[in-house]
Amino acid sequence: MAARGMRKYLDRRASGNFKIQITSMVDMFIILLVFLLKSYSTSPVNITPNDKLRLPQSTSAVDPIDVLKIIVSKTAVFVEDSKVADIKGGHVDISSVDNTDPQFIRPLFEELDKKAQHAKDLAKVNETVQFDGKVLMQVDKDLPYAALQQILYTSMLAGYYDVKFAVMTKD
C-alpha cells in the first residue's frame, strides 16, 4: 500500500515540469546595475581605503589628471609604487634627510630626478610627450606641514613645481 503510494507520488513529481520565476531576480539585477553604473569611475586616481593613507575632504570640483604620483602615507613616502623614505611620528626619517640641508630628502630627489629625466628623454623623441613638472600628491590628512614642506621643497628642486593634491569629495 505504501509502495504504491510512493510510486504514485514519484510519477506525479516526474511528470510535473516547472519554470523558475526569474522576474524578481532581473528586477534586483537592474537595481544593482543602475547603482554600479552610477558609481562607475574612469578617474586616473584610484585609492584603496587604507588606515595609513586617509585623504582630506574638500569642496574642490576639479577632476584629477594622470601625472606622476607621490604618495605620502603615515609611514612612508612613495613615488608611484617605489618607496623612497620612511615617516616616523609625522616626520621624514632623519636618515633620508640631507645633512647640510634639512629640507632636502635625497632619495626622493633621486627618484624624482630619474622620472623627470625619463620624461625629458621621451619628449625629445616624441613630440606629444612634454615634461611640464606636474605632480599629484596623495597626502595623509594628519601629516604636519613640516614634512609636507620638505616634500614640496625636494620635488620643486627636481623640477616638479606644479603640485596638485588629491582630495576626497564631501558628498
Binding site: 589628471i65 614640496l152 621643497y153 613645481y161 558628498d171
Partner: peptide, 17 residues
C-alpha cells in the same frame, strides 16, 4: 571599476626653480 570614493584635486603650485 566601481569607485566608492570620488577623488578630486586642489592645485597648489610651488615656486619654480
Amino acid at each position: 571599476s566601481i569607485a566608492f570614493v570620488q577623488i578630486k584635486m586642489i592645485e597648489a603650485p610651488t615656486p619654480q626653480v
